[in-house]
């Protein structure tokens, strides 16, 4: 069936179903979901990339807003850790959203494809580190970037603190910028930055990443709204789906085997990234 011949109401239903599934997987994988949503919807649905990027940003915002309360209550998201990083990240995201509207569609599609494939490889190659016995640096100590986390799955209580705070701040400004350009939540980069660079425990990194996205994307979402790039028929079914899905994902987070989710996410991202790249290069429209 030709895309043009499909009744309009099929698309919001399909968006809801896809977003619900992404919402569950995104929280389990510690990603915002935009990194799956933008390439999948950009490749398989008929909407222009401008609207998909706008929807992707609000999608990641809605999903992480919804996942926030259970993550905070479980101690998996640290407000003290999130507040300074979200501040620089939201400035970067705002600037990135403005920059994204200055780039051509083909260039954006190509860069998106390269980025998504690169992220999939990064997730595949990256290892988690639970080195919680680091010495806090002066800025980290001043900001009191530390806490205690009870891990019900492992049955242990972890006292943690972070280090390399300045590098962390710079990383989150850059991550916010890239996320703002492409309408991504950028959790793919948040988790390694928090865990590998700053030495936050993995589950605290995953939980805090979700809360970070909810703050960072709040600033860039307004750019897309003011530029007219939020199409309600695309955005609302997507956010309703992801808000329901991510609530379920947040509840499953403590007990789900992360490697299975990780492998699934990598395969989907490689396929979606290849599709975005081929569209950007005009090889497969």
């Amino acid at each position: 069936m030709e895309v043009a011949a499909v009744p309009w109401w099929i698309w919001p239903i399909a968006l809801f179903a896809v977003s619900f599934a992404i919402g569950i997987v995104a929280v389990l994988a510690g990603i915002g979901g935009g990194v799956l949503f933008v390439p999948i919807v950009g490749s398989l649905f008929p909407f222009h990339l401008d609207f998909v990027r706008g929807a992707g940003l609000v999608f990641a915002l809605a999903g992480t807003l919804s996942a926030g309360p259970p993550l905070l209550r479980a101690g998996m998201a640290s407000l003290r850790l999130v507040m300074p990083l979200a501040l620089v990240g939201s400035i970067g995201s705002f600037a990135g959203a403005l920059a994204g509207f200055a780039l051509g569609t083909e260039l954006l599609q190509t860069l998106l494809g390269v980025l998504i494939i690169g992220i999939a490889l990064l997730i595949w190659r990256s290892r988690s580190a639970d080195s919680v016995n680091v010495e806090a640096d002066a800025l980290g100590a001043l900001l009191r970037l530390e806490g205690e986390f009870r891990d019900p799955a492992a049955g242990v209580s972890i006292d943690w603190r972070t280090h390399r705070t300045l590098l962390g701040l710079a990383a989150f400004a850059a991550i916010g910028f890239v996320g703002g350009i492409f309408g991504l939540g950028a959790g793919f980069a948040n988790v390694p930055a928090l865990n590998l660079l700053m030495a936050a425990p993995l589950k605290v990194a995953v939980g805090s990443s979700a809360l970070l996205i909810s703050v960072i994307n709040s600033s860039a979402a307004w750019v897309y709204l003011h530029r007219g790039a939020l199409l309600p028929l695309v955005v609302v079914p997507s956010i309703l789906g992801v808000m329901l899905g991510s609530r379920i994902g947040a509840r499953l987070l403590a007990s789900t085997p992360a490697p299975v989710v990780r492998r699934l996410v990598i395969v989907v991202m490689l396929l979606a990234g290849a599709r975005a790249l081929s569209r950007g290069l005009g090889l497969w429209i």
């Binding site: 809605a62 807003l65 926030g68 309360p69 905070l72 101690g75 407000l79 003290r80």
Partner: peptide, 23 residues
């Protein structure tokens, strides 16, 4: 920290549920 997290979580929960219902 726990009280801070609980306060933020409570407001986030109510606001997000309201946002969901309104949407």
């Amino acid at each position: 920290d726990r009280a801070l997290r609980e306060l933020y979580a409570r407001w986030l929960d109510v606001a997000t549920r309201a946002g969901f219902a309104i949407s």
